[in-house]
Amino acid sequence: MDFLPAVSEPSPALDVTAAPSVKLRGTPPANSPTALVELLRDAGAAPAVLEATHAWLMRRESDHSRVAYSKDGSWWLAWCAASGTNPARARAIDADQYATALRDSNLAKSTRGRRLAVASAWYEYLVRADVAERNPFAGMDRPSVSADDSPTRGMTSAQLAQMLTYARQNETARTYALLVTLATTAGRIGSVLAATVGAIGHDEGHRVIDLVVKGGNKKRVVLVPLAVDALEAYLAERDQADADEWLFATRTGRPMDEPAAFRLVQRVAKAAGVPHHDALSPHSLRHSYATALLDDGVPLADVQDAMGHADPRTTRRYDRGRGLHRSPSYKMNEKLTKAMHAAEDA
């Protein structure tokens, strides 16, 4: 097959360092299905593409999933706009360059893989709906995430307590309530931020909160007294908040977004004196929940249920993460130290 043009034309110089100037982390370009469709409309997408995209999003099981797909999909559209790529005519090389840009943004492998998977799923649907000819992400190698280790940095129970104590004494009631809720429910940040005031309730004598989890299902989790006290103090400041209002709302009444929560965790951890504050995220509190319970001898199956893991191997990742604390190297250190003292005394 001849890959050269039929007519000889001057070839432009290839600038291998050229890359579109677009920020691929932080606040997503779109945070709802409506905003994603608006991005497409601004890009000049045909009405049939807009209709198909809306249908693709509405197939998701929950509002939470539809928002998550919209956020992840919007990064591809932002990259296309910055690079001058028409999404309708995107090639495999464009998709690969986008994947490279995600990698160069120092995003976690899981985040990069999820964004690429969402973009690919969108094109698969457009092809199925006969509004696109191909999926430029088909057959792409995606970042492999280890099934044995969690890349999330956690905290010891003492560090987590240090952070929460600081927040209770120095931060707003909302900040403290959010951190305590994350630390005591093992809720994913997206689920906690998607909760409404009405999600808090009672069940069989327990205070509970209903969180939307993967698959669009609701999971009822216990609110321990530490979280109940924090939430009640926070809601008292809001003065008669309606049941359908977002639990962790901004001043404008909108829900706090995940980038804001990410910045909040690192800021409070730094102020509290946690040494690796710049490596923490909201997921670090979920990670710390699992490792603290496993350290205290809570059965793996019970931790698995609390974390909402369908596969026990996922929970085992947190169990293996405790290896730093129980490393036999500490025993070796103790043994050598005693032997060296004995040698000095001889």
Rank of each mutant, 00 (worst) to 15 (best):
M256D: 01
V224I: 05
A271W: 01
T152N: 01
R267C: 01
A138N: 12
A233L: 05
T252I: 07
A249C: 10
A249R: 14
V213E: 01
L211K: 10
A230E: 10
S144V: 06
T184K: 05
A227P: 03
V197E: 08
I189G: 04
T152M: 01
P259R: 03
L211H: 02
Y234L: 04
A177R: 08
R238M: 11
T165W: 00
A167C: 13
G154K: 11
H202I: 13
D203W: 13
A158T: 14
L182F: 09
E133Q: 06
A161W: 07
A138S: 13
P259N: 00
L178A: 12
H206Y: 07
T152H: 07
L160V: 01
R251F: 08
L264P: 03
L179E: 10
A260T: 11
R142L: 05
M155L: 15
M163G: 11
G198N: 11
G253Y: 12
R134K: 15
A199T: 11
E258K: 09
M155G: 11
M256C: 08
A233H: 11
L164W: 10
L178Y: 08
D229P: 02
V197G: 14
I200P: 08
A243R: 14
A132P: 00
V228M: 07
Q162L: 10
M256P: 03
S146L: 00
N170S: 00
L179Q: 03
L193S: 04
S146D: 01
A161L: 13
R134L: 14
A195R: 04
A243W: 00
Q266F: 13
T175P: 07
H206N: 15
S157R: 15
R251W: 05
A186T: 03
S157I: 14
E237P: 05
T152V: 09
G139Q: 09
V131S: 03
N217E: 02
R134E: 14
A260G: 10
M140K: 07
A173L: 13
A260Y: 07
R251D: 07
R251P: 06
A173N: 09
T250M: 08
I200D: 10
V197D: 13
L193I: 03
R207T: 12
A249M: 11
N217C: 00
F137L: 01
A129H: 09
W246N: 14
L211V: 01
